[in-house]
């Protein structure tokens, strides 16, 4: 890669997207569906993080919790309360599903902030699978629980009659845009933050600007820590909102 840049002869090296390249961990070759890649490594590390936090951290089952145990309990209570408040009491059965998504996204986001790491959640393929999973399961739950009366979600009975078909069209479009925005929001946020950090890092090649760019990276990094959590929270809470629509489609 370096030779390429030299051949181009540009002074600064801008490769903000190179950090997102999927490459095999061992040896080289085509990336097949079962190849062990950096995706595998960092997803595996996020599983390890989840296990450390929620299984090893709580293994002492203390009545008065240690630090790691109280963090695990905090995460549990946070997601549980979110499911209960936003999606309703009857959605508590889907709590492990939402907890899985939330913990995976939080751990992957924070692991992505480790320098030289690979951010799995910045890939649209990853977030789209999760968003489509949410979309399909929520739609199926809606039809399973309510049959065809689930479609009354799109027929807003509180609106005046002439407006209803227009509103129904808008509602249907917004319903099908849901998985798109749901997935692109997370991937876009992660990708944008990391790319911006890389761009600022490239500016550090010029000695005069270097201190400024280090400061900028520090500031963006702090923002990214916030964004990492908020995006996981938003993903989980939107899942709860969609779940509420499926469980209570009548406005």
């Amino acid at each position: 890669m370096a030779s390429e840049v030299n051949s181009e002869g540009t002074g600064l090296e801008f490769h903000p997207m190179d950090q997102f390249i999927v490459k095999p961990l061992f040896g080289d070759g085509p990336v097949l569906w079962y190849t062990v890649t950096n995706v595998t490594l960092w997803m595996g590390l996020s599983v390890v993080a989840v296990v450390l936090l929620l299984v090893i951290g709580t293994s002492r089952r203390a009545i008065v919790p240690s630090r790691s145990q109280s963090i695990g309990e905090l995460a549990y209570g946070f997601v549980y309360k979110m499911v209960e408040d936003v999606a309703g009491k009857d959605a508590v059965g889907y709590f492990p599903y939402i907890m899985t998504l939330f913990m995976f996204i939080v751990c992957a986001n924070f692991l992505g902030l480790v320098p030289m790491s690979f951010t799995t959640t910045s890939h649209i393929a990853v977030t789209a699978v999760m968003a489509m999973g949410v979309f399909l399961s929520v739609t199926l739950i809606g039809f399973f629980k309510h049959g065809f009366s689930f479609l009354s979600l799109f027929w807003i009975s509180s609106a005046p009659l002439p407006l209803r078909p227009v509103l129904a069209l808008i509602e249907i479009i917004s319903y099908f845009v849901r998985p798109v925005s749901h997935s692109i929001r997370l991937a876009g946020n992660m990708m944008a933050g990391h790319a911006v950090i890389k761009v600022f890092a490239a500016f550090a090649g010029i000695a005069v600007i270097a201190p400024l760019s280090v400061l900028a990276i520090t500031a963006i990094y702090a923002l990214e820590i916030l964004v990492s959590f908020i995006q996981a929270y938003v993903f989980a809470i939107l899942t709860c909102v969609y779940l509420k629509d499926a469980l209570h489609p009548h406005h």
Partner: peptide, 25 residues
């Protein structure tokens, strides 16, 4: 690379789900 990512994502999610429902939660 989509197939690779999707495969490992599904594996990861299933592992986390099983760990959470069997042990942690």
């Amino acid at each position: 690379s989509f197939g690779n990512q999707i495969f490992w994502l599904v594996v990861t999610l299933v592992v986390i789900y099983v760990i959470l429902t069997r042990l942690a939660l």
